[in-house]
Write a protein that binds this DNA or RNA. Structure first.
Lengths: 302, 302
DNA sequence: AGAATAGTGTCTCTAAGACATTATCGG
DNA sequence: CCGATAATGTCTTAGAGACACTATTCT
């Protein structure tokens, strides 16, 4: 940088400083990544004319070791010294699903003390979105005891109280994760405090319902983020196969948002984001629908 | 939980397992928090009739030790074993500014290897928003070499290339941090890859321009998040004093978004979020403006 | 034929953009 | 009076919501 080497108060150059630096002087926490792997799958439908309803699913693994032995947890693991956080997330994703190159987004880093009874653990959660048609090729392979759960949440109750300089709103939610074999149900309390024009949100687990660690909280948070992001970005396409009909796309929006959308408005909204093909989905007992694909020219803002 | 205690494959109960657990078996990274502390201040204005223009500022500290000795860095420090991530952020904020109970939000966790030449460091960045009127009371106190910098960014150039199954957009930005005494200028490249309907964004420092570590990247990211959030949340109020005029509020939006807004539309938009007072800002060489305060009853969606 | 979805047309309503107009001060 | 900001009125435009209507298939 300059001709004269920079020295610190003890007269050391950078090389000297680094040579004598003791990296072990601070006690360090363990760092892990937790994966929130979502997909949307078709449920069974007996009436051949009707569209099969879709459901949002999340991947969990059964714990084979203490703590929380036998309970269900998010896939994840320790970040090794030589890999970046994102590489660790990709590695965990690959070992769990055998899939690469899918949508992956860092969500939040959970750093409360006491999250893990063994030691201090700080963990960063990543959300991955998988197209279920890719997935079905290798469902239930080597992964011991990894299973998909249908995910739903239910509003339970809400209270709002006035305080000296603002309000406090408490909201209770039930998070339900359902499988052919298992049914997990957790209760989470979300407290929103408004004081002195500052909004703060806190999440607490009221009942973990057989979900290990604080993972019920991480799942609820991810679901909220997924809902928020699907409205103003194009992440929904990461859940779709290469070719899809507009009705299928709309179903994906509906199952994530948990409400029905009007077809006319929906089609107007996505019109610029998709490209027509000349293929049709046929043999469905009703008018065939055109297949579309994602339009990569569509530039989302940012 | 049950009468028979759960045991793992080695026949251990949870108590036995935890007693024999070796917490030091994995090599662990250091974890730090980095603080992005923003405020909006009035610049000088000679014409007594005109409103003083506002500028967005960020707090930096001058490094007194290797590495990056003499360069400017974000305030921050190590997370200690007994405090949560958020507590660490609050502690750093307090030691740096003497302020508590302000807006604080976790932004992102940076986990690339080689971010710090001393050792593996993973750091979580937190954004804090400060009302500058509170701040002026204790500006430039004990904090050695902490200073506010006016922050601006400038679009430099953009390229868009078609690839096999999507597009790649590269955008170069200049980040300028200006002070009475110093002027830092960094260049950042943002690469946005769209492949197979999946969007990925990567940030790289092209020229760190006397900003320590990868902090230029963290600052640019925080600025982008601040811009995004001010549009769909009410965080702007965290930057305002208790009483403010609507023109002042509009100025804050304008300086953060970097564009002018139409007064009529702006007033319609914030009308429900504020409460009138019967006080006026006078002696300004023009029609007095009414003071408003934040309306805590205004519920933002979430 | 009829049950179902696919796809379009169009009216209404709301919110944002644009811009003109009035109000009010300090000098 | 003048220069400046404060505050409101109103026309236009864009987009979402609502809903009716037409098109097309398979058993």
């Amino acid at each position: 940088m300059t001709d004269k080497p920079l020295v610190n108060k003890r007269g050391q150059t950078e090389q000297e400083y680094l040579r004598t630096y003791d990296a072990s002087q601070f006690e360090r926490p363990s760092v892990t990544v937790d994966m929130l792997i979502f997909t949307v799958v078709d449920e069974q439908e007996e009436n051949y004319r009707k569209l099969s309803p879709k459901s949002l699913q999340i991947l969990l693994v059964k714990r084979g070791e203490h703590p929380f032995l036998g309970q269900w947890a998010l896939p994840g693991g320790f970040v090794s010294p030589r890999e970046s956080l994102e590489d660790a997330a990709k590695r965990e994703l690959f070992t769990e699903t055998n899939i690469q190159n899918i949508y992956l987004e860092q969500l939040y880093t959970w750093g409360d003390v006491g999250r893990d009874p063994r030691m201090r653990v700080i963990s960063t959660s990543y959300m991955a979105l998988v197209d279920s048609s890719t997935l079905s090729l290798q469902a239930g392979d080597d992964a011991d005891e990894a299973e998909w759960f249908r995910i739903e949440d239910k509003w339970l109750k809400e209270t709002k109280t006035a305080t000296e300089n603002g309000t406090v709103t408490e909201k209770w939610l039930e998070l339900r994760l359902v499988n052919a074999k298992e049914e997990l149900s957790a209760t989470i309390k979300i407290t929103k405090t408004i004081a002195n024009r500052i909004v703060q949100v806190k999440r607490e687990i009221v009942d973990a319902g057989n979900i290990a660690f604080d993972h019920a909280k991480l799942i609820q948070y991810a679901l909220e983020r997924l809902r928020g992001k699907i409205e103003y970005t194009d992440i929904a396409f990461a859940l779709m196969p290469e070719l899809f009909t507009l009705s299928e796309l709309q179903q994906v929006y509906e199952v994530i948002l948990g409400k029905e959308l009007l077809a006319a408005a929906f089609r107007r909204k996505v019109a610029d984001k998709v490209l027509e093909t000349n293929q049709y989905r046929k043999h469905a007992g009703h008018r065939p629908s055109k297949y579309y694909r994602f339009n990569p020219e569509w530039m989302e803002q940012s």
